[in-house]
Design a protein around this nucleic acid. Structure first.
Length: 567
RNA sequence: GCUCUUGUGGUGUAAUGGAUAGCAUACCGGUCUUCGAAACCUGUGGUUAGAGUUCAAAUCUCUACAAGAGCACCA
């Protein structure tokens, strides 16, 4: 049961009966939430402040009528009006009993259907198939995976997609690199790699494999395909170690082969959105090599982009952007109603042009959403580890997973809002104390388990939970229950904003409240959970704590982190 | 120069436009004869600056300042 939405519906009922001219926009402004400070009450609504703007009347003139209507609803013990225009509610205590019962019964408490089976394409990582994944891909990987889990559990049909850039210069460079390795091995020479080639021993391994397979180096296309297949295998291995499985891998090459680029070009051309011309030199970037080139250009600035963008180069080749137009067109063609891309912050400048292309192709109804993940700053011994692409000394995900458990890595990738910078402190990950929130959370589950075990060992009997047991609760327990009642709201907000970190913060909060509750028993033995002289109270408390444990597990499941039953 | 992201206690950060800004760390002082101290409690301290919108701004708009990223082609 989501008590907040339930009461909100009741409030809206009351208001619409009295004022039938309210539109959906206005109704959406009406909130019903737990006030930050619980002294105001269990719930609070802003209805009067919204209403007064719409019907143009003073709050004082309407408040009494509304409050009388609200008081008629049987679930409130008290309805009060407070200064700027809040109406606060105290719920009948038996409502909290109902809330707890619904948590006990509901296997998937809080995971309501928000997506109504909407088809969502969630593209993430899409690292170039030139080698294993490194730390630069880690955050987006975990973020994308957890977002997909969150949305899948709330009624969206999510397809996790990986776009494979298996075309272009980088693949050519990859080919040249492997070629040198092959030649070095076959003719026992020691030719060095050139600028732009890929360092890394994994390519020597691939070279050896290709030799074994008797590959014909002159058949470039086939060799390239074979190399990409092998590097993609490396990536897939890393993914499986992280616990990530994709539903679909889409090849840029295939997009080209299907003729989608020409198709898209034709559509845009018919709409008069393509012209031949030259783009201005990038301002402020003093590049002497800049030469104005005649290109095929898409009028992206008609759709909110700052300048127009080239889609075909002077030499007749497609630009990378052209592929992306076609790729996103392809996503729409496959029937996706919502397109989400998870990109690194360095691709921020790219959003507008892709958005422009989707709109230009007439797909205004498609929800297009890009979530940017800021850079991860790797800390080792309190020092930031500098990495450079050129020398290839990027820390690989594989290496991190050798030192730190995958679940812990996943957790720490989510501990910040996606668009905030993230310090990834290896030392903190290994810490087993309160400073490490994942252990803090797991410890709460372990403690509840320990109580269950203790209860069993004492050979006490578990009775069914009922109203009589509930009445044994004091305000400490009711407060915990109020925190549990927020869970559906947390899920809803996480989904709406596409921000899984909200789940993480809630879990830390919930675990904190639990530890706090537990410790009260240290000061006052009456407040210990297990009280052998009052079995009903003991069972009531255990029931509540098992609900906490259950919600924590539900949360961890969204993050794909295994709960630790015993530590 | 232009675009995007971010500015919250000393430090790291949270907060669908809501009331007294939450948490951690650091610092101060307390709590184990115990259902697990791998924990808890008390105290100090904060929305970069200025204007605007609003009944209400950390949140929205504008300006300034600061940090990071991007800005033909390449991907």
């Amino acid at each position: 049961m989501d008590i907040y939405n339930k009461v909100r519906d009741a409030i809206i009922d009351v208001v619409t009966q009295r004022y039938n001219q309210l539109d959906i926009k206005t109704l959406n402004l009406i909130t019903c939430e737990q006030p930050k400070n619980l002294k105001f009450g269990d719930l609070s609504t802003n209805i009067l402040m919204i209403l007064k703007n719409i019907i143009n009347e003073d709050i004082n003139d309407i408040k009494d009528l509304i409050i009388v209507d609200l008081k008629a609803i049987s679930i409130f013990e008290r309805v009060t009006y407070v200064k700027p225009g809040f109406i606060n509610f105290i719920l009948n205590k038996n409502i909290w009993y109902e809330v707890l019962c619904s948590i006990i019964k509901d296997k998937n408490y809080g995971l309501k259907n928000l997506g109504s089976n909407r088809k969502v394409n969630l593209e993430f990582i899409s690292a170039n198939p030139t080698g294993p994944l490194h730390i630069g891909h880690l955050r987006g990987a975990v973020f994308g995976d957890v977002l997909s889990r969150l949305m899948t559990k709330t009624g969206f049909k999510v397809t996790k997609e990986y776009y494979v850039n298996d075309l272009g210069n980088q693949i050519e460079n990859l080919f040249q690199t492997v070629k040198i390795h092959i030649e070095n091995t076959v003719s026992n020479t020691n030719k060095a790699l050139k600028e732009g080639m890929y360092p890394g021993d994994y390519l020597k391994d691939i070279a050896l494999q290709l030799i074994k397979e008797n590959i014909d180096l002159s058949n470039k296309i086939q060799v390239k395909e074979s190399i990409v297949e092998k590097t993609l295998d490396l990536i897939k291995k890393d993914l499986s170690k992280l616990g990530i499985v994709f539903d679909s891998f889409i090849s840029e090459k295939v997009i080209h082969e299907q003729g989608l680029l020409n198709k898209v070009l034709n559509i845009l051309d018919k709409k008069n959105l393509i012209y031949e011309g030259t783009l201005e030199a990038p301002r402020g970037k003093k590049d002497i090599n800049w030469k104005p080139e005649n290109q095929l250009i898409f009028k992206s600035s008609n759709f909110g982009d700052s300048v127009d963008r080239a889609i075909k180069k002077n030499n007749g080749e497609w630009t990378y952007f052209a592929s992306d137009i076609a790729y996103h067109y392809n996503k729409v063609e496959r029937g996706f109603e919502e397109i989400i891309n998870i990109w690194g912050a360095d691709h921020a400048g790219y959003i507008k042009r892709v958005d422009a292309s989707i709109k230009a192709l007439g797909n205004n109804h498609i929800k297009f959403n890009v979530k940017l993940c800021q850079i991860v700053n790797l800390l080792e011994n309190n020092k930031s580890v500098k990495m450079s692409k050129r020398s290839g000394n990027f820390i690989l995900i594989n290496e991190i997973l050798k030192k730190i458990d995958k679940d812990v890595v996943r957790f720490f990738m989510l501990i910040r809002k996606n668009d905030a910078h993230l310090d990834f402190d290896m030392k903190k990950c290994l810490d087993e104390s309160k400073e490490n929130p994942i252990f803090y959370i797991q410890y709460a589950i372990a403690r509840v388990n320990s109580l269950n075990k203790f209860f069993k060992e004492k050979k006490l009997e578990f009775v069914d939970f009922n109203q009589k047991l509930f009445d044994k609760f004091n305000e400490n327990e009711i407060d915990l229950l109020k925190i549990l009642s927020l869970w559906p709201k947390i899920i809803e907000n996480s989904v709406i904003h596409k921000e899984p970190h909200r789940v993480v913060y809630y879990l830390i909060d919930l675990a904190g409240s639990f530890h706090n509750y537990w410790s009260k028993g240290n000061l006052d033995s009456n407040l210990r959970v297990i009280n052998e002289t009052d079995i009903e109270l003991t069972v009531a408390r255990l029931t509540l704590l098992n609900c906490i444990s259950k919600v924590i597990k539900l949360g961890l499941d969204i993050l794909a982190i295994k709960p630790v039953e015993k530590m």
